[in-house]
Simulated assay, not measured.
Amino acid sequence: MTLREAQGPAEGEGVRLQKALANAGVASRRVAEQMIVEGRVRVNGRVVDELGSRIDPEKDLVDVDGTAVQFDQSKRYVMLNKPTGVVSSMKDDRGRPDLRRFTKDWDERLYNVGRLDAETSGLLVLTNDGELAHVLAHPSFGVTKVYIAKVDGKVTPQTIQRLLRGVELEDGPIAADKARLLSTSTGSVTGAEGAGSLVELTLHSGRNRIVRRMMAEVGHPVVELVRRQFGPLHLGTLPAGRARELTKVEQGALLTLARRDTGNEETPDE
């Protein structure tokens, strides 16, 4: 398929596809040429396999092996391991610790994608890509998040099944996409007598404090909560209070997710 058939710029206009890919850091120009010839590159959803093809990097959507490519080098995508006690805002009108302290290494004005409540730690995405932030923040888009909850009490397999079947909350029913018990301990996680448990929950809902409310509903209030994954991104070994730019692979995976149809929108929150 030629780029003309893929509705790209007219012949002689735009940038050669292999050069654009190299400039974006996907691969060297020679390797990019090989990718094109092998039919691994799509422009606006259609395979382009001719080396003379040109694109408009500002308008055309390109992916390699199904992973989106970002040509705009001014865009920044940052992963933060938000510590507890920090609100998910770039400026808090009540004077509480906010996210500004974690963005000093970047000249660009970054914004958070969605929120984590102040007492929840873990993975938060910061970006100056407003379109991506708008899309990924909406739970109806189906971005899954994985949480590890330290809770009071001994969670049973029956409780896990209840979380999977769904519980009724004041704002409607909710079910975990996945749920599993990681461990139990004989001592209470709050230091009192009794038992404590670690539970992993996977959700795509963005309803306010949803994990805490679900666990409270099944009789196991949350003591500590951390978000370990957001869509294709994993927190890994990033220490609490540290931020880093996404790798090219992570950035591509996030952009691929963001280019899907958004569907309906809801107001997001943890």
Score class of each variant (00 low, 15 high):
Leu235Cys: 12
Val199Pro: 09
Gly194Ser: 07
Ala216Gly: 11
Arg209Asn: 15
Met214Phe: 11
Thr202Asp: 04
Glu224Val: 03
His204Asp: 15
Glu193Trp: 03
Gly206Ala: 07
Val222Gln: 01
Leu257Cys: 00
Leu203Thr: 13
Leu198Met: 09
Thr184Gly: 13
Val249Gly: 09
Glu217Ile: 09
Thr247Gln: 00
Glu217Pro: 11
Val226Gln: 06
Arg212Asn: 15
Leu254Thr: 04
Val189Met: 04
Val189Pro: 04
Ser197Ile: 04
His220Gln: 05
His204Ser: 15
Thr190Ala: 14
Leu225Lys: 05
Gly196Val: 00
Val199Asp: 06
Gly194Ala: 12
Asn208Glu: 08
Pro239Ser: 04
Leu238Ala: 01
Val223Ile: 10
Gly219Phe: 09
His220Trp: 01
Gly196Met: 00
Glu245Cys: 05
Leu246Glu: 13
Thr202Cys: 04
Gly187Pro: 01
Ser185Cys: 02
Val211Gln: 09
His234Asp: 15
Ser197Gly: 02
Thr247Met: 05
Arg244Glu: 14
Arg227Tyr: 09
Glu200Arg: 03
His220Ser: 01
Gly191Arg: 07
Val226Arg: 06
Glu200Val: 14
Ala192Met: 09
Gly196Trp: 03
Arg209Val: 08
Leu233Val: 13
Gly236Thr: 11
Ala195Ile: 14
Arg207His: 10
His234Arg: 03
Met215Asn: 00
Val218Glu: 14
Gly241Val: 14
Val249Ala: 12
Ala195Thr: 01
Leu235Met: 07
Ala258Trp: 05
Gly219Trp: 03
Gly196Asp: 01
Pro232Gly: 08
Leu255Thr: 07
His204Thr: 15
His234Ala: 09
Val189Phe: 01
Val226Asp: 02
His204Gly: 06
Ser205Thr: 15
Phe230Tyr: 08
Thr186His: 14
Leu255Ser: 06
Leu233Glu: 10
Ser188Ile: 07
Glu224Cys: 02
Gly194Val: 00
Arg242Ala: 08
Val223Ser: 12
Glu250Gln: 12
Leu201Val: 12
Gly191Gln: 11
Leu233Ala: 00
Thr256Asn: 03
Leu198Ile: 04
Leu254Lys: 03
Ile210Thr: 15
Ser197Gln: 01
Leu235Thr: 04
Leu203Asn: 02
Ser197Asp: 03
Gly231Pro: 12
Ala192Leu: 11
Leu246Cys: 07
Glu193Val: 01
Pro232Tyr: 03
Thr184Ile: 15
Val222Arg: 00
Gly236Val: 13
Glu250Tyr: 02
Glu217Leu: 11
